[in-house]
């Protein structure tokens, strides 16, 4: 659980910084596009940032495309981390 919280905090921290977002608004149910104002042009930048931050390859295009909310993103990264162990 602790590791999970750390990952959530890190995601919020790094995305807030790299995309100039308000961390207060980055709650689990916030949608990346509508609530946080990201768009398709940001998608690749986000992949680059997350790959660098967590040292993982975000290879599953299908899963990436289905991410709508912050919680979807957390779950996606947690699954990836678990798979790498």
């Amino acid at each position: 659980m602790e590791a999970e919280d750390a990952l959530r905090r890190r995601v919020v921290e790094v995305l807030a910084e790299e995309f100039e977002l308000d961390p207060e608004k980055m709650v689990p149910e916030a949608t990346l596009y509508e609530d946080l104002g990201l768009d398709s042009l940001d998608a690749v930048d986000m992949v680059v940032v997350l790959e660098k931050t967590f040292g993982m390859k975000l290879t599953d295009e299908e899963a990436l495309r289905s991410i709508r909310t912050m919680e979807d993103l957390f779950q996606f990264l947690l699954r990836l981390q678990a798979a790498e162990r």
């Binding site: 910084e17 790299e18 995309f19 100039e20 940001d42 690749v44 930048d45 986000m46 680059v48 940032v49």
Partner: peptide
Amino acid sequence: FRPAYWHR
């Protein structure tokens, strides 16, 4: 641009 783009 967002910092993420510049860094990229």
